[in-house]
Amino acid sequence: MSVSPFPEKAALRREKRELRAAVPANEAREAAERAAAEAEPWILERSPDCVALYAARGGELDPAPLAARLWAHGIQLALPAVVARDRPLAFRAWRPGGATVSGFAGIMEPTADSAPVMPDVIVVPLLAFDRACHRIGSGAGFYDRTLERLAVKHRVATLGYAFALQEADNMPVEAHDVALDAIATERGLIRPGG
């Protein structure tokens, strides 16, 4: 992966990671419930057969309440799995409380025998975002590679998922950066252009 021409991305990642980590556990749980209530209608409008979430770590907004809501609607859920450092993510079937194993960087993912699935909606973790729905991730590029591949092969809806405090006013945006379709926070749903 090439070095970003925007060194301020590293500083922004650090700042937002620290802010996110400082959210008290009870406030994080409340934020996760409110964000799920914001995200649920947007996802249901798309009538998805399958929604990919993520296993929260490092202070990420936990999508577990959203998973429970979607599962109650009978929607197939999935989690990503890293197959190789330079490859797009794979998605495997999963359900709330389902078996997971520690994968790349200790991120929990479905067991290898879980069925491969193709999501219609991907809930994307991030470190920073702006009102145009650009995101900065952790820097490994897994979601960038995945979303680029799926844009060609299978149109998916993308929903960023974060605490409102992760919003940034002056996001460094590179030519290859593609905006998400929307971002859900505990304070509401953000769509590009308002």
Results as ranks from 00 to 15, higher is better:
K16L: 09
L159K: 08
A25W: 15
A112F: 00
A164T: 10
V121L: 00
F142M: 09
G188Q: 02
R145H: 00
R92Y: 03
I190L: 12
M171T: 06
E174Q: 08
A64W: 08
P65A: 07
G139I: 14
E18Y: 05
T158W: 01
V124P: 00
L189A: 06
L12R: 05
L159G: 13
P24M: 07
A157F: 15
I136Y: 09
Y54A: 00
G59H: 02
Q76N: 13
A168S: 11
A36N: 05
E8V: 12
H134G: 06
D181Y: 11
E30H: 12
E27R: 13
K153M: 11
A36D: 10
N170H: 03
A28G: 08
P119N: 01
V101A: 11
S2Q: 15
Q76R: 13
A36G: 03
L19Q: 14
C133P: 02
P110S: 05
Q166W: 10
P192E: 07
E18S: 12
V23F: 01
P5L: 13
R95Y: 08
A10F: 14
P119G: 06
T100S: 10
A99P: 12
I43K: 04
V124I: 03
I75T: 06
E33H: 11
D49I: 09
V117W: 02
A84M: 03
A32S: 07
V178R: 13
